[in-house]
Design a protein around this nucleic acid. Structure first.
Ligand code: ZN
Ligand code: ZN
Ligand code: ZN
Ligand code: ZN
Lengths: 260, 260
DNA sequence: CTCGGTCACGGGTCAA
DNA sequence: TTGACCCGTGACCGA
């Protein structure tokens, strides 16, 4: 069972696993994507061998694109079903599972997201796995708190602070979130992040520039930055009691999934 | 910052810069390429020094391939991730830009393709650059018209002729297209191509033989040859009004790109 | 469900 | 033979 819980059928083109019909034919991701690209670019291939009889199976489908495309055509893949290229995908508001559903692991999932965001931060790029883990362990709580705020869950945050004045109505797009993580980590007390202290101003500048240049529909940079200030002023945060799993377990899971 | 905007990490094999995981290990281009070649060719090296203790770092990684490969294996580089060879990339395909997009330079691109095809024709092989340019200037319009027909754009062609009977449904593969260009040029009125007049029949024969031998899914030779006849009967063609750039400019561009 | 786009990591290339 | 470089592939995810 590969993707999701869907059972696979056989790709009519190459015999690899197919999880659905594409352009009218049961096809794997590879063949469907290959067909799309070929039609979009209006490519006409030449058979490498010259006789249009190359075998197209999972292992050899990339040997001769000409015969692969010929097989697509022979099996009646529908060129008209390939749409025109669209622009790059629009920035979307980050998706976090809604806090008010019944899933009791909702906080675990948000915490994992916090771990992932921290681990992927560009400031950790040069670090080896052990250093990365240290930084994540020392900083994921404040990112976790940020995600709760972004998700509109002021109520939970209020349980962990005496300051009643919890920021509300905070939202951002994924690029802004990436920059927020940089700003937070550049203000961290972690030894491994000392080098990043001078970068705080730069990342704040990036956030302001990005927001003004990109018509980002959400998130005023001033509001976002003051949220970070608030989180540092009212920290440190210890939100582990929200979790069903251990923090180590969740961090391990994310680290192996993301190949950190 | 080396390649793209990605920051580098350290190659686990030799300590050079790595821009990503390869075969399961953070590796530089050199080590990843070395591993691929070794696995593909199933090479078994012997340690130069004889003790399998050679240092593998950026400066010395090429001293002893045996120890370099041993280090790859020790770090668990995955031999199974090395795929089968693919066909040679060069001359694998031609592309014609889609006619039905909104790009106002679409005809310029097709014209450039016509220039390129003409300049690369085998009949021009022995010519010096100036002669080549003369031939291209005198013959690229009819090739341009052919490409429009191959792209299914009868509508545009109809604007340049009073003959309503425009060939339609014409298609071919790149080899057939090369032969079509030969056939067209062998019928040219250009002085420099006079020598090729007797070759017309030969290239038509080649086209018929190629098509019958190769199971090419597209393009009956009779239909293709009658399309050429139609183009000569209804020419000469002056399609410059379709272009945004000057013909000289486009020809210059192709000549310098293709090093004609 | 089947379109779309993405991008890490495969591939091949060719000058050195 | 090497490796910097660029292109194509396809697993994956969002809509
Ligand atoms: Zn397939
Ligand atoms: Zn083939
Ligand atoms: Zn290396
Ligand atoms: Zn050795």
């Amino acid at each position: 069972m590969g993707r999701k819980d869907t059972a696979a059928v056989v790709c009519e083109i190459c015999g690899d696993k197919s999880y659905g019909r594409h352009y009218g034919v049961w096809a794997c991701d590879g063949c469907s994507c290959f067909f799309k690209r070929s039609v979009r670019k209006n490519i006409i291939y030449t058979c490498i061998a010259g006789n249009w009889r190359c075998v197209v199976d999972k292992g050899r489908r990339n040997w001769c694109p000409a015969c692969r495309l010929a097989k697509c055509t022979k099996l009646n893949m529908n060129r008209l079903a390939v749409q025109n290229e669209r622009g790059p995908r629009k920035l979307r508001c980050i998706t976090i599972p809604r806090i008010n559903n019944l899933n009791s692991f909702k906080y675990d999932m948000i915490f994992s997201k916090a771990v992932s965001l921290t681990g992927k931060c560009i400031l950790l790029n040069f670090m080896i796995s052990e250093q990365r883990r240290e930084v994540v362990e020392e900083n994921c709580q404040i990112i976790f708190a940020l995600l709760l705020l972004l998700n509109g869950d002021q109520t939970t945050i209020r349980r962990f602070t005496s300051n009643e004045n919890v920021p509300s109505g905070v939202s951002c797009d994924p690029e802004q979130l990436r920059l927020l993580v940089c700003i937070i980590l550049s203000q961290s007390k972690s030894n491994l992040l000392k080098f990043a202290v001078p970068l705080e101003g730069f990342y704040k500048f990036c956030l302001i520039r990005y927001t003004s240049q990109n018509d980002a529909p959400l998130g005023s940079p001033v509001c976002l930055i003051s949220t970070i200030d608030w989180l540092y002023e009212n920290g440190p945060w210890y939100l582990n009691s929200l979790l069903r799993n251990s923090t180590e377990g969740l961090i391990n899971e994310v680290f192996s999934a993301e190949k950190f």
